[in-house]
Structures are given as C-alpha cells and as structure tokens.
Amino acid sequence: MIQVESLNKRFGNIHAVRDVSLKIHPGQIFGLLGPNGAGKSTSISMMTGLIDADSGSVSLSGLKPQSKEARHKIGLIPQSIALYEELTATDNLSFFASLYDIPKNQLQSRMDWALDFVGLKDRATDRVSGFSGGMKRRLNLAASLLHDPDFIFMDEPTAGVDPQSRNKLFDNVLELKELGKTIIYTTHYMEEAQKLCDQVGIIDHGELLALGTVGELLKQHGGDTQVSISSDRGVKEFKSSDVSNDLIQALQTSDKVYDISVNSPDLEAVFLNLTGRQLRD
C-alpha cells in the first residue's frame, strides 16, 4: 500500500506539486496522467525519496521512502534513459545489481531473468550505445527490476518508443502486475492510462484534479456521449447521457437510417472538461 498525503514541492516560483494525496492498493497499476510540466516526475521523485517534499508525507507499506528497507523495495524507472551507454547491457545490469544486497548465487539468474523479461537476451553483451531507442527503454526497465522490488515507479516508460517496443513494454507492465507488484505509471498518453491502469489520477499544474478508475472518471468528468444519426431526414447530432433511451426515441422518428455513430467520452474529454485544455498541445 502506498499512501501519499498532501505532498507539496516548490521550485522557486513554480509550485510543482500541490497538496497531492493518493492511496494505491497493492497489486494495482496506478496511472498519473498529465501534460508536460504537470508535476508527474516531481511527484515520483518525492515518492521514491529522490527529493524531499516541502511538506506532506509518503509511506510505502509504512516505510519512509528514504529508509534503507524501503529502498530495497523501490524500483525506479527514470524518465531519462539512465544507463551507461559505453557499457554493455550485462555490465550495466551487474553494476546496478551490485548496489543491492542480492545474494551472489542469485545474481546471475536475476540478470538473466531481467534481460529475458524485456526481450534483450540476445543483446546482452552489446554496448548500450548501439541500441535502438526502444531497446534502451526496455533495458532501462530491466535495470530497475534486478532486486525484485515491490513498488515499481515508471516515469513515462514509453517516451520515444516504436510501436513494437511499446507493446512489449505494455506486456511487461501487465506481467509485473500479475507478479503482484504495485505500479505507479506516469504518462501523457491517455490511451496508455486507459489501457493499463486500474486507477488514474489526472494531474495538471501540480494539482491532482481527479482520481478514480477509468470508468469512474469518464462517468464523472467525461460528459455526455456524442450520438450522430444520419437518415433520410438528414444528419441528427446530439449529446446523450442515456444513450440507449435517446437512441430508441431518435430512431422512432426516422424512416430510413443510413448510419449511426456513438462516441463515448475518453480521458482526453475528461481532461478537457477538467482544464478546458487538450491533454496534448
């Protein structure tokens, strides 16, 4: 269980994170969705003990993130590719593994598992500098999993990634969930949040604007469904909060119907409704 209570962080004039409170249940994937500069990375930095909060508290199963015990349980996948480009994949992994107290006899199997997990087994002895963007991203994930952390913080893990690597990463996230990990996943792609996350928090200008399952968010902030009926009487468009009823009524008044389209709201709409802006500019 991750518990975050009224976290605040300022950088000079910028109030990067304001009063963010969260509760993430074990085994869940929590998505933090927001545009550039919303405060996603800053939130993650405070939750992993990378930076100190100005105020508020973070508890990882009752542990402070800065504590040594908690650090063994934290897996941080930084937003940047935090790898040594001039070292091989294996060299990177064995170095990062050496920072944790992994028993010697498990080290090799952990590294093998991590490389296999992200599908880079055949590139183990190649230097990272020769990897594609997607491969680097996958190794960036592998390097954070060697010590088998319980809490996995993924900061925009798919940034700048080809569709193939992206799908592989999605699979990885879901596999980690199956392994019982608690995952915090930041993104500015609403499709990702919608597809992967059990809970989503929408953040903008450091503020957590809404929190809930995707369904809840759509219901609360998505607005009405857009319905459009094209018939011999022309095109009829209307917003509906009760699609089936509205549709039946509309169809009764039309003779010949050519086309019906029902556009239910997505997280983009949720964001638009909450902020008056598009998620991606």
Partner: peptide, 13 residues
C-alpha cells in the same frame, strides 16, 4: 544529466 545518479540515490547506498 543522464539520470544514472537517480538510480544511485534510490538504491540502498
């Protein structure tokens, strides 16, 4: 600048 320092800080060292 690369971010590897973040990995070091988050690690139990």
């Amino acid at each position: 600048t690369l971010g590897t320092m973040n990995r070091l800080i988050v690690a139990p060292i």
